[in-house]
Nucleic acid binder design. Structure first.
Ligand SMILES: [Zn+2]
Ligand SMILES: [Zn+2]
Ligand SMILES: [Zn+2]
Ligand SMILES: [Zn+2]
Lengths: 188, 188
DNA sequence: TGGTATAATGTTATATTATAACATATTCAA
DNA sequence: TTGAATATGTTATAATATAACATTATACCA
């Protein structure tokens, strides 16, 4: 494994670029949805309407979304109304209750399609679609809100080592880094 | 800086032990409280009654405590009742309102005496008392709940590098590792 | 096909965590 | 002492998340 190629920086692989402001995001979203379909088919789980809608909402951008924001979009948005008989709507004026969103998110997280950001109480589409649920690290731009998933082997190595040194056995990790992304940083 | 001394592991310094079940915790707490007094004096801030009580509650053990749990202890506990005139108590049956606790926690965090654990919505006394507010990493035992603050230079280095490689500028970090602590792990 | 178990969603209610906003009290120092 | 700054009291509510049970859809098998 060629771990350090040039002189200055140990390039493990080309670090994936931080999502650019102007990129073709429709494609990000479409790809993610397509991948999700495939993953669910492969796993024998069902990507139902609500789940798909929630996933689509989460993929509207690279900015994490709160559960109630997703709910609001589900309820205001163009989707087809569901309950045809009870139009009580629980006096919330919407089609769905919070549970619907939380359940969909639970499903999506369980299938490795969405991550939760504990520092924001918000959710984001998984950038490594199609993989099993996995631990991830995040870079969160405090200016534009765009959040990128980081999967650094070196970081994982360092983390494992630091932890193991103390006799600890990892089974979950939460790494969320706040700061300024390359596109928001004033150029020199 | 002798960074790698022996052969196998790059021991930076002796890794601090994970808090043992039987240790003299009264001393942990007493030390923490004393240090807090000193820190506040030095900084010209005031460690008032409530703040001290909250800090003491947080230091009852090495297990993070929720804000409302702190509140409950404040209100049930042996402390002196406060408001002598309005005994309305907002129908909560207690002496203090949630705000009191949150404000104390805010103060304590601002002075580097307490950390918040985002993955638990809970608070823990800072193990590096007397230092300025700092980023920290945590090891959280999912069995006994004991949580230890980790301050690994190597980890920080790896983290900085991984992040910098992507053109990102850190200004806050959140690292919370869940797992089994050395004292809860079945011995071989 | 019909029946039945499983999975998904609907529905209502409530728990948990945290903050807003304004009133009062305390402290410190000019 | 008096006034500004700090701290606390008080009330209300926001924001996030889950519990519990009813109903509906789906899959699968006899
Ligand atoms: Zn995109
Ligand atoms: Zn940005
Ligand atoms: Zn202790
Ligand atoms: Zn433990």
């Amino acid at each position: 494994m060629a771990q350090r190629a040039a002189s200055k920086r140990p390039l493990v692989t080309a670090p994936p670029a931080f999502p650019k402001p102007g990129h073709n995001h429709a494609r990000c979203a479409a790809d993610a949805l397509a991948k999700a379909e495939a993953v669910c088919t492969a796993r024998g789980t069902r990507l139902t309407d609500i789940r798909r809608q929630v996933l689509a909402t989460v993929w509207q951008s690279h900015v994490p979304v709160g559960a109630y924001e997703i709910l609001a979009q589900l309820n205001s948005g163009g989707g087809t109304p569901r309950s045809h008989k009870s139009r009580a709507l629980t006096a919330r004026g919407g089609r769905h209750a919070p549970m619907a969103v939380y359940r969909a998110l639970e499903f999506l997280m369980g299938n490795g399609l969405v991550h939760r950001l504990a520092s924001l109480n918000a959710y984001i589409g998984c950038a490594h679609r199609g993989e099993d649920p996995h631990a991830a690290q995040f870079l969160i731009c405090r200016r534009c809100g765009i959040t990128a998933e980081l999967k650094s082997a070196a970081l994982n190595r360092a983390l494992n080592q630091a932890v193991t040194e103390r006799g600890f056995t990892i089974d979950s990790q939460l790494v969320e880094i706040g700061g300024i992304c390359p596109h928001c940083r004033p150029k020199p």
